[in-house]
């Protein structure tokens, strides 16, 4: 059951979380809070930072480290205000011509009463639409769990990369198994069927790149990301914004084209 091993690795305790990347891939990370509409969702960390010498906007879903932190961050399951906070920063990025880099790690958007009341579906939908037209380069990196719409809401990008042990799926294997077979215990089987590993997604043309994880040495991963992100953004900058948006549209447009 290779796929489920990856699911467990993606969720493993001690794995680097969103803010680790913000602190180690970049320098001068400066955090900004709040969506200016309702509140400040700590499951989504946003701010500006330098990628080598380049100012960028950074956004990360953060699951939290210890128990207290995890609770404060709702285990990385964002409320609508989290997605709106991210969108606010993306709009500022567009205004100031800063590329946007997102780090995705979430079991999914939060499925609670308050999230519904404040329009979880609308918040995600708006991000999908607006990210598709953001006139600066956007790169999203899946670093752990990529749970459905809650992950996609920060992954409409020019390029989507995945860490070797990250997973990305329309539904969690447990959810899939319990709906399909009324038995969450068959999650291993479901994980296999869903084709949710980085290798699967690369084969299906859903992602551009896999970042390998050398023996859990995350400092090497940070170095790789710093260089690769810098190169990819520099390459994006040779395109004019209209060309870039056309490519971004086509990137998603061709997925699941039926003849």
């Amino acid at each position: 059951m290779e796929a489920y091993k990856k699911v467990m690795a993606a969720r493993a305790k001690g794995r680097a979380t969103g803010t680790d990347y913000l602190q180690h891939v970049f320098t001068d990370f400066t955090e900004f809070h709040g969506d200016r509409r309702y509140g400040d969702d700590l499951a989504v960390v946003t701010g500006i930072a330098k990628l080598k010498r380049l100012p960028v906007t950074v956004i990360a879903l953060e699951k939290g480290r210890d128990t207290k932190d995890k609770v404060a961050r709702n285990f990385g399951m964002a409320h609508p205000e989290g997605y709106r906070k991210a969108l606010r920063q993306m709009k500022l990025a567009e205004k100031f011509g800063r590329p946007v880099i997102c780090f995705v790690d979430t079991a999914g958007a939060y499925c609670g009463l308050d999230a519904e009341e404040r329009g979880q579906a609308q918040a995600i939908a708006e991000n999908l639409m607006e990210m598709m037209a953001l006139r600066v380069p956007v790169i999203s990196v899946l670093i752990g769990e990529g749970g459905s719409g809650g992950a996609l809401a920060l992954a409409v990008a020019d390029q989507v990369w995945m860490l070797e042990n990250a997973v990305y799926s329309v539904i969690s294997p447990e959810g899939c198994a319990s709906i399909l077979w009324k038995d969450a215990g068959r999650a291993k089987e479901a994980a296999e069927c869903l084709r949710m590993t980085a290798q699967d997604l690369l084969e299906m043309g859903v992602i551009e790149k896999i970042i390998y994880e050398p023996q859990n040495d995350f400092s090497k991963i940070y170095d790789t990301l710093r260089n690769d992100l810098y190169d990819a953004i520099t390459a994006c900058k040779t395109l004019n914004a209209d060309e870039m948006l056309e490519r971004r549209y086509q990137r998603f447009r061709r997925i699941g084209v039926v003849k």
């Binding site: 999908l128 459905s148 719409g149 996609l152 990305y168 799926s169 329309v170 069927c193 869903l194 084709r195 949710m196 699967d200 997604l201 299906m204 859903v206 998603f252 997925i255 699941g256």
Partner: peptide, 8 residues
């Protein structure tokens, strides 16, 4: 799978 998510 993921292909349906991408339709969003």
């Amino acid at each position: 799978g993921i292909l349906s998510l991408m339709q969003m």
